[in-house]
Write a protein that binds this DNA or RNA. Structure first.
Lengths: 206, 206
DNA sequence: GTCTATATATGGATAGAC
DNA sequence: GTCTATCCATATATAGAC
């Protein structure tokens, strides 16, 4: 089992550096000092490697969501959740960006439409609870708007970051994109909510 | 010259349907009823085809920007500009989505950082003029926020659309994503600005 | 589990005749 | 401009020794 994990680790590193389509199975095997045959024993197809990495990303994100819901709803905690997800996405950037096979892979793992629905419903629940906690003030239209923008932003900030700001560090990038979203949330935040956003940024800069 | 254009037209159509990486030069040649050698005569590398399509997209978008600036600044005209750009992007979706080579292509055509700067400055100018025209009320922070979100949204709505809503028609998709952005603009719009947004949607539904 | 070797397929790119 | 034929690289997949 150790070997499979090592393969995933090295493969992800190479995908991150050069992109999925630019990395061949021979190169992965060489980087691991094993043979192609051996690699094929563990992951018969290259897609199986990507699949395993996608699953890992997905399950890690789910853990972050679950952890969030154990806490009282607050914009501070919500930003922490986003930062964790952003960090996780960054670490898997190789398989999330410019990956033509990804769509096909998603359709093989699960019903993608259901995944999307769950994502939307997840943010809906979070925002509704933030409203109940008196951190946000949202009309129904505001809520739907925020959900639409959130689902897009939380997925594609990484694409822009990776294309436009290659030279920036992981932490700088996450901070940059978190600040934009924090600002967007502050538009709909109560005074209590704004204070909670402030708490997040105080903790970040310690 | 006729032949080159025909190649671009068919290639783009195939890229849109199946993605750049899934379409081979042999298939393009077959669809055109010419030989691979002949195709290579016009475009020595597959990348040259993509490059030509990227340039076409870029120059068409520039024309839309120029046309916008000939008109008085208004949110109505700005939405029209966005709709034109969205439409153009949709038509070139094959080369904009899931295209691992795109980043490399951009770096070969021009200094990409300068292109980015121009894009940001372009939106800055547009928003500043909309403020002068009394359609938007923006603090400096609002302005920067809106620019950040715009540059991201105007590029990646297409990715989300293509991944999540494959079955929707071009017009429905553009309307869906335009509505979200219209709502975002309305947050910062004056009464006059909101009326101008309303004008746009009246004309759309005629 | 791991190796070497090889079969098979497919993709991009090119050489040279017409 | 257009063709045919071929080269070269890479991916999957498998056989069989250790």
């Amino acid at each position: 089992m150790k070997r499979k994990e090592k393969i995933l680790e090295i493969a992800l590193q190479m995908f991150n550096e050069r992109g999925v389509s630019e990395v061949g199975v021979r190169e992965i095997a060489r980087a691991l000092s094993i043979s192609v045959g051996n690699l094929s024993y563990h992951f018969p197809k290259k897609e199986d490697i990507i699949l395993a990495l996608v699953n890992r990303l997905s399950s890690q994100n789910n853990q972050h969501y679950q952890h969030y819901h154990l806490q009282p709803a607050s914009l501070n905690h919500f930003l922490q959740l986003l930062a964790n997800i952003f960090s996780n996405q960054f670490d898997h950037r190789g398989i999330l960006i410019g990956n033509a096979e990804l769509k096909h892979i998603y359709s093989t793992i699960f019903d993608y439409q259901i995944t999307l629905q769950k994502r939307v419903q997840g943010f809906e629940l979070i925002y509704q609870n933030l409203q109940k906690a008196n951190h946000l003030t949202l009309s129904e239209a505001d809520l739907q708007h925020l959900i639409s923008l959130t689902t897009l932003y939380a997925r594609f900030w990484l694409h822009e970051a990776f294309i436009d700001h290659v030279s920036m560090s992981k932490n700088s990038l996450i901070e940059k994109y978190m600040k934009v979203w924090s600002y967007q949330l502050s538009i709909f935040a109560t005074e209590e909510g704004k204070a909670s956003l402030g708490e997040y940024w105080e903790n970040v800069h310690e």
